[in-house]
Design a protein around this nucleic acid. Structure first.
Lengths: 141, 141
DNA sequence: GTCTATAATAGTAATAGTTATCGTTATTGA
DNA sequence: TCAATAACGATAACTATTACTATTATAGAC
């Protein structure tokens, strides 16, 4: 049973590069883009390649260890899974992404989904606008 | 006042290409990607270029005439504005995008936003999963 | 510890979606 | 009809991501 686990998938190995990526995501102010992860990871593993970062982000989200969200700027961003489920508040000026703990999956929504017979895998909710600081910065100019 | 309107922006002209794009979006089953719009538009304006499509989609969404949404597959999709506000139900198997009329911006959410002093410009809510048909297709294989 | 299968890597090329450039064309108000 | 310039087509460039390939490193078996 070399290279295969019970469900027919390959067995994961633990490389220094993968560990560095996981450490970063675990420690970081989350919502990192692939490029950001790459730049940070280079400080720990100088020879790491961007391809390796993408490959690992893919593998790790398949495995359910991290969560990928895609935003309006066309970039995907990643964060550690297992943290409490949440959504995003994104400032259009400074780009800050804040967590929104309120989940909009209200009971009446569930009812509609059941009626439509739609089997939910994942949902995403983002609010775009201007944060407190940027509102003042904008009006001040 | 040539080329400028009251708010300092350029005055829009009405080209056959732009009209074709608007006609398509007005008539279509909505949520079209740039590429889809391009392919359809070529049937009406054979010489239209993909660049022109993108340029118009940009201009028209700046103008507020159409709405751009970005999805998990990395592609932006466009639909006519002015229709009732709605969100999306996206099938991961067949890619069908259905409208969800329920808006998750519940009153208690508004309260949180006010507390955070976050000025909302736009919000996006998407539910990914499997539609009725694809659930049966999947279990049957 | 050594061996071996292969997961994972670095480096690089390729792709997809989108934006920018530039010389030409066409729209629109005067 | 004319002039200013918005919009165009063609094409190059750019960004995010994926694929390819030869090489390296991990981890279980011996």
């Amino acid at each position: 049973m070399n290279g295969e686990n019970s469900s027919g998938n390959r067995t994961l190995r633990n490389s220094k590069q993968r560990q560095a990526i996981l450490d970063l995501l675990a420690a970081s102010p989350e919502h990192m883009s692939a490029e950001e992860i790459y730049q940070q990871a280079r400080k720990i593993q100088p020879n790491i390649s961007l391809g390796t970062v993408y490959r690992n982000l893919d593998t790790l989200s398949e495995q359910g260890m991290i969560i990928r969200s895609s935003f309006a700027d066309g970039k995907a961003r990643y964060e550690m899974a297992g943290i409490e489920h949440h959504h995003h508040l994104i400032c259009l000026q400074c780009g800050e992404i804040r967590d929104l703990e309120q989940c909009p999956m209200a009971p009446d929504l569930e009812a509609v989904l059941q009626e439509e017979d739609f089997q939910v895998v994942q949902h995403q909710f983002e609010i775009y606008g201007y944060c407190h600081q940027c509102q003042h910065r904008r009006s001040g100019e």
